[in-house]
Every structure is written in C-alpha cells, then in structure tokens.
Amino acid sequence: MTGVYKGQRSNAMKVQKLLGQGVVHGLLFSISLLFLIPLWWLFVTSIKPLDQILTIPPIWWPQPPQWENYVAALTSPAFPFWRLMGNTLFYCVTSTIGTVVSSAVVAYAFARMRFTGRDLLFGITLATLLLPGVVTLIPTYVLFQRMGLVGTYAPLIIPYFFGSAFNIFLLRQFMLTIPVELSDAAYVDGAGDFLILWRIMVPLVKPALIVVAIFNFIYAWNDFLGPLLYLDDSSRYPLSIGLYAFRTRFALQWNLITAAALAITIPLIAAFFVLQRYFIEGVTLTGLKG
C-alpha cells in the first residue's frame, strides 16, 4: 500500500517537474525570440530588394534574395569598407596591446610588491572605476587639441598605454591567486621583477589577459563617441563612424545600410562563438569580484 502511494507521489512530482520545465522552457524560448528576431531582421533586410523591406505583413525571406546588396554596400565609395576596417583594426590592436601590457605591469606591482602608499593608491584606483567619464571629457579634448593631436588616433590610443583602472583591478585579483612560492623560487635564483612578470606571471594569468584583451578589443571596435570627438577627416574614420556617415548619405536604402551594419557586426559575433568561454568568464569575473 505504502509502496503504491510512494510511487504515485513520485509520479506526481515528476509530472510537476516536467510541467515546471515546460513552463520555464516556454518562457525562455519566447523571450529568446524577442532577442533573436531583431538580429534575423538585420540579416534578412540586408538581402532584400528595396520594395520588400517596409511591408505589412512583413516578409521573412525575400523573393529572390539579393546577395548583391553586400557587393553594393561594401564597394560603395560612401562606405570604403576595407579602409574603415583597417582604421578600426589599427585602433583595436594598438589600444589592446597598450592596455594589456601597461595594466599587467601595474597590476603586478599591486599584487606582488610592497611599497609605501600602495593601499591608498589601490583605493584611488577602485574609486576611479565609478568615475563618470563625462567629467574628464572636455579638458582631455582641450589637452589633445593643444598638443595638435585632434584629428589623429593618438588621443584615442595614448591613454591605453598608461593602464586602465578596471583592467588593473581584474589582473591584480587574478595575480593574487597565484601562489607566492612560484615567484619566490625565481627570486632566489636572482630573477628580477620584470623577468618574473614575463616568465612566471604572464603564462599563469593568460586567461585573464585574454579576457582583458577581448573586452578592450570589442570596446574599441564599438567605440563611437571617441572617434566622433577626435576624428574629423573621413579617411581616418573607423567602421562605427563610417556606418553612421553612410547612413546619413543613404538614409532610405535600408538594405545597403543593414548589409554594411551586419558586415561590421559579424566579426564580433564570430569572435564570440570562437572565444565564448572567455566571454562568459570575463563578464562573470566583472560582477563577482566587483
């Protein structure tokens, strides 16, 4: 008797659990559509002929798909794709190298070296994490203007070579988890700090360095306000401003605009799928250690 009862109860629980999972997945699935449909729309608009874009009811797959839009958009003199891409890559690569190297060096000092004023300096570093960028915007512009650097990438890139609060913080937290014995052994062998940083720390905190590099790269790739402020010559535009300028010229050619827009988005999405592990880890670190 009790056995039957028990069986019924666990069956009921199973049903309840299945039902619960059903509700959870139903919700997750329908909400994920709200997130994914706009991306699909970006793609499908980019292969549409002009007269199939703004229609009611909407057209989910064009007849016939017009892949030539990509040729038209990416070879348009108003959207010099490869030059824009070159500029963007230059900005991304140099700023990323700058911030990874400088932040790692500074983080090493915070994590491993004893010096007067260290805790105060680290406290200030944490405080600047919350500093709203707006309060330094104009004088920084004036500074670079006086140095005659407005119109070049220098104002966008130079600050990266002096470390960034968040990256220093993240790398320091990571370096603190490396056992001191590892570097102490090297000390005994007479290795200097630079050598220890380069030979011992860097290989051990590689995942954190990759996270910093990825997030900086994406930040620079997407940066809009920086290039908008500092670059005036269209030959120096990065992709973000290039797309914006393209849109002001071809306001109603939505198929070409979305083709160009997707062309500058796909590298990021591809990077995400290849480096997914680091993305999730990186965002997670941001929140938990913060």
């Binding site: 997750l28 699935f29 909400i31 994920s32 997130f35 994914l36 706009p38 991306l39 729309w41 970006l42 608009t45 874009i53 994406i218 790739w221 997407n222 809009f224 992709l239 973000s240 797309l243 914006y244 849109r247 939505w254 605009i257 979305t258 827009a261 997707l262 500058i264 988005t265 990021l268 999405i269 995400f272 997914q276 993305f279 999730i280 965002v283």
Partner: peptide, 24 residues
Amino acid sequence: FYRTAFYLPALVPAVVTTLLWMLI
C-alpha cells in the same frame, strides 16, 4: 543556447543597434 541568445545583442555595436531599431 538561451544564454547566447540573450547576450548576443550586447555585442552588437551601438550604431548598428540604433539603426536596426530605427528600421524595426
């Protein structure tokens, strides 16, 4: 799958996002 779906829009450049929603 869902995690990716919810996170992907955060990766899209702000200019692209804005233009896309102007269209939508």
